[in-house]
Amino acid sequence: MKPAAFTYARPADWPEALALLGGGARAQAGGQSLGPMMNLRLAQPGAVADLRHLPGFAGVTVTGATCRIGAGTTHAAIEDGAVPGLLGRILAGVARRIAYRAVRNRGTIGGSFSHADPAADWVAVLPVFMGEAIAFGPAGERRIPLDGFLRGLFETALAPDELLRAIELPLLPAGTRWGHWKFCRKPGEFSKATACVLAVPGAPVRAVLAALDTPPLVIADAGALLLAAPEAEAARIVAGLGPLEPWRAALARTALQRAGLAAREDA
């Protein structure tokens, strides 16, 4: 299980990264998804552009009410509190349950999000926020709403000549409630159903249902999931997904209900 041969380049700045991309290189951040695929020869890029040393690739900055997370920020950094406040606590809880610590130390939020594996954690969580992905292309930065970023399985709104530079999320006010539930039989396993529910005071409740071998479903008005008996609403949402194996449908319903319950009980 050794990768096919490739050339390796480490761009020093973003324009150089774009140039490599234009030349057919595959962008790599932490390499925790691409690495295994390359070892299995499921991915055979002729060239790899390692983005990890780009200026500003990793790191978190807060400006006003917006938190900008560099695409190269590792899951472990987020787990360890790189993002401040309530938002940070929510993201830390998600990060802690991604794969294993040794993978989180290398894997990045931007790499995972742009890889767009339907079972991945950030794919299932980021679209719930009213935030934006910051793409960088030949024309400079472009903003893509997070809930429009994922276009399909392993498919995003990034143009072939664009890279994901950062994720911008709104800081969350006090009183925000959060629920997140995913079904893994063991830590690190790919989720078989994930749901999250975000209730920001004064805004419609939002939810995401994901990890069902389909792109994540964003539910823009998910208030019914916060009710005492969300079963019917969960069943309605899942029925709308189209045919699922019965057990996956059951997990999907449970995910919505339990994420809703967690948000309801979130103080």
Binding site: Y8, G35, V48, A102, V103, R106
Partner: peptide, 19 residues
Amino acid sequence: CTVELDGAPARSCITHAGA
């Protein structure tokens, strides 16, 4: 294959030489 890479545990099997 876990080793300490730049001070933290990492999988050495999925990190390639160039990186």
